[in-house]
Design a binder for these strands. Structure first.
Lengths: 212, 212, 212, 212
DNA sequence: GGTTAATCGAGACGGTACGTCACGTCTTGTT
DNA sequence: AACAAGACGTGACGTACCGTCTCGATTAACC
């Protein structure tokens, strides 16, 4: 069931310093040279590490990048057995509209952070080519985040702020997905006002006479 | 005397058969081997063409792909001086909701077409790495399409189906962008029902008590 | 207090089973994969031994091979303090020509033995690249053999079968060296007749009218 | 019959400057770093050439080395259709003994030339591992040389200086082979006196009473 | 209709990165 | 302390494509 690849390396013998050096180098290089300029060879050189040490522990360039981002974002790479921040939750003041604006504005700020732009784009591109990487990302980042988001919407549903039959998954896609697409495809500058606009429009809809 | 600069090929002498062979090969290969397996050498070999013939007429692999897709979709690559289907328009029966569902269902059908999935994905990836290509795409495909979409929404606005102050650009992003993201990132199977759901949710919003 | 320098292993604690396994593996692998395919990693893996155990006791791949051959040939690897077969001698029937043919035919048989061909070639190649190994080989194999050969020739000299001023060293090179070169460079099939021919030609010379 | 490997490159398009640069670099590096330090990568770097350009035209490192030596020795690499110096011949003054000494002394001088020692050794080692290379060497160098040598001995045979039934091939091996072995395995310093000694001993034999 | 110049196919070239292999050193338990 | 195991930094391997650059051999426009 939990079948390992041939000659699986022993994680207990793994050298932590090399792991950190690799992830740091990958993160920095992704920011400096972008996705298309990122290479395993470059990461190994910058990290002062043999290429084999990368190939030993990661199945692909994208997997390195994912761990690098998780290290940079959360201060730690995903642990197989450790649930990542189960206690984290979105703010819940009782006012869904205000809370969503707060959160989407924070997302805007994060996506505008020049340190994360390069690595995040590189990871996004990698995931389009690599379903396994996308699955890993979904497992470790997408799913927990989506759970938090859905939880907040569900709370609003219970409070009567959202209809009982609302499709909360689609709501997440409309709110955050639209923001993410605007960032990824650069067709809009990301501003707090844009975040607010998304929230208002998604909550109120486009129907004539809708009041905000 | 009026000597052409060294690297300005003469379009009049261009060999049409080679052009078609290249675009066809690019389209087919993108479908067969995906983005990461697509190479200029592969296209040239499959097309029975010298590499230089590609480099002479296209600035990048992505540009070839774009033309290949336009040839496949519209039966013709973009002409610099020809306005692309100015007369095309979205259906306008007076019922915005129904018209949008019709159009989004058609989009679902197109994105589900296995012939287009590979090339479209490949182009999407290329555009993330190549702003010039993205600009070219925007110019020749995105903008005309967006104009059509916005025109339909504007018509609805005039008919009182949408509020005067609605942000039609955002509306387009919510409607089609969400669908495109679901396709590109594969987090939902694309079905007509999903298209309908998007239309309803975006038109009506998420507020409690929203009428559908 | 009387602390041993860090890298001076204690021969008393050496594990004999590992030593044998290493030498056996080296000998077999040299026969199977040839010189260019022979690797320390391969030897260690086949012997079920850590690489360090090889590096601890032998200075180079060639040194392992040398010991492996001595184990296979003489049943024992060279001991630093043990004189190697001092009592061994070439046959001395009083007929130099006959005795030399006997010995060279035996050499032919040994070189034709498929079990030894691979390892011997591998060792020969190693020695060309590694003067220290060549010296070690000379010390433990070449010199004792040469002493035996020279002794037999010297005996013939005393018996009047060879002139007093004959260069016995050169004689050894002409007799055995020519045979060895024919084997190593494969420019002749090694047959007993060839051995006889060498003996006759070297003893009699090429001059016209030479008696055989 | 004359089947080429898949996708055989077109010799007409070959760049002569690159060929020379590669052969020169290989020759120099073989002298500087020896066989074990010689690498395709090193040759390519020193020659300012892509590795593929080497792999395109030569099947192995040894083949490069062979051509490099032929360029250095004869001023030209082997041409498929050109017979290499058919007119060349060993001196023939009518005195075999003197002529052989002249030639072997010249060989001594060549083998002692520090420029050739490294490359020649490297080639010798390569040939032991690579029968195809050895065959190529035999074809282009060994055979022509051997023909010249045999011709001189045959001439002596006709002149009555050698017996009619002498094995001229073995004679060549005894004369030059012994010299070459002494050089390759370094068991003797190569001096003109040693050359003379070989000639005298091989011509006269070791028999008691042989007069010179 | 013959001339001529640009495009064409083909592919060699100097490079960069790939993913693998073995090197010799080192580190971590086990015997 | 030697051992089996194997991770590590290093560097060469042989391959795939990159984008540039020659080569004749077609073309196709212009004389």
């Amino acid at each position: 069931m939990s079948q390992r690849p041939r000659h699986a390396p022993d994680p207990a013998r793994r050298r932590e310093t090399s792991r950190r050096a690799i992830l740091t180098a990958a993160f920095e290089l992704a920011g400096e040279v972008g996705y298309s300029g990122l290479s395993i060879e470059g990461i190994a050189a910058r990290a002062g590490v043999g290429k084999q040490t990368i190939y030993r522990w990661w199945p692909s360039k994208g997997a390195v990048l994912l761990d690098a981002l998780m290290l940079a974002l959360q201060g730690e790479a995903p642990q197989e057995n450790a649930a990542p921040q189960d206690d984290a939750a979105l703010p819940d003041t009782g006012d869904l509209r205000a809370d969503l604006k707060t959160v989407l504005r924070a997302t805007v700020a994060e996506l505008n952070d020049p340190r994360f732009d390069g690595p995040l784009r590189a990871l996004a591109v990698e995931m389009l080519n690599d379903p396994l990487l996308a699955a890993r990302y979904a497992e470790h980042i997408e799913k927990p985040m989506r759970r938090m988001k859905t939880a907040r919407l569900h709370s609003a549903q219970r409070a009567g702020e959202l209809p009982q039959d609302a499709d909360l998954g689609l709501a997440v896609e409309l709110l955050w997905g639209t923001l993410r697409a605007a960032w990824l495809e650069r067709h809009r500058p990301l501003t707090p006002a844009y975040a607010d606009l998304i929230v208002d429009t998604v909550l109120d809809g486009l129907r004539a006479g809708a009041r905000r």
